[in-house]
């Protein structure tokens, strides 16, 4: 039981950060990036291929995160441009259609060219006992990195001028423009950051379980679940929602079986929407 909960927390931290990357883009520009999971997988595969070609782990990981950021930036300056010219429902729908297309392209290319590639970062060392449960070093390292990234993001949004500029665009775009803030460059910053987060999550996830080329869509769905439960546009909400869903996931695999875990997660998300339509945290960060 304790072991299941601890495993759930390790997984949940990653769910949370994964959700953060999707939710900040939604909160910011009112768009959904359904190529998000595919970009995470692409980052992971870049790390895997780089390491197989002899690059040491740390620079390979950096390259992977850069790949996520670069892919996201590319998306923002190309196919997202017509999306931002639309408003409201039209904007969301067009973003969904276009990014699903991108997801198919990335996914299709990877399955075609590198069908059996998967990133699996094995972190050595003896298991460390936590609350009497032996935890693998990989799990602990992944959790530490995720916590650092989450805290770093919250501090960025709370404390820095750039972070405040981002929040201002979310709260009142006209007000932000009147203050001299260019919403387009703030959106570009957030979209790029989102891609870097996708890359980072793919890397930390591969420390506990392999990330194969086919993982893209399930990562996107997970990120969507976390976003919905946490409240759109909320960093704190996404992290908390990730932890809750991670523990639910671990407990249901432990007691019920991993086959219906996805259904249990969907039910948990549906219940949250029924009880709190705006998610755990309605407001931004």
């Amino acid at each position: 039981m304790t072991a299941a909960i601890l495993d759930g927390l390790v997984l949940g931290l990653q769910f949370g950060l994964l959700g953060v990357g999707l939710t900040i883009v939604y909160g910011m520009g009112g768009v959904l990036n359904l190529a998000y999971g595919a970009m995470a997988v692409a980052s992971a595969i870049v790390v895997s291929v780089a390491m197989r070609s002899g690059l040491p782990a740390v620079p390979a990981v950096a390259l992977g995160i850069l790949t996520g950021a670069a892919l996201s930036l590319l998306l923002n300056v190309t196919i997202m441009r017509p999306v931002y010219r639309r408003r409201g429902d039209q904007r969301v729908l067009l973003s969904i259609l276009l990014t699903i297309g991108v997801a198919f392209i990335i996914n299709g290319y990877l399955v075609w060219k590198l069908p059996i590639e998967a990133l699996s970062l094995s972190i050595g060392g003896d298991a460390i006992s936590i609350l009497g449960v032996p935890m693998r070093v990989g799990s602990l390292l992944a959790s530490a990195i995720t916590i650092l990234a989450g805290v770093g993001l919250i501090l960025f949004f709370r404390r820095t001028t750039a972070g405040k500029a981002v929040r201002s665009v979310i709260q009142d775009e006209v007000g932000a423009r009147l203050c001299g803030i260019n919403p387009a460059s703030v959106r570009m910053l957030i979209f790029t950051l989102s891609g870097a987060i996708a890359g980072l999550v793919a890397v930390t996830r591969s420390m506990t379980s392999p990330v194969p080329v086919s993982e893209g869509f399930s990562l996107t769905i997970l990120a969507l679940l976390v976003t919905v439960v946490g409240g759109l546009g909320s960093v704190k909400g996404a992290m908390l929602a990730g932890l809750i869903l991670g523990v639910v996931n671990a407990l249901s695999s432990f007691y019920i079986g991993s086959y219906i875990t996805t259904i249990v997660l969907l039910v948990a998300a549906a219940l949250t929407i029924l009880l709190r339509p705006s998610g755990l945290f309605g407001e931004y960060t």
Binding site: K164, R167, S168, Q171, D172, L178
Partner: peptide, 10 residues
Amino acid sequence: PAERHLFPGM
């Protein structure tokens, strides 16, 4: 502007 456009959550 007359509607002020402040950032309400800040």
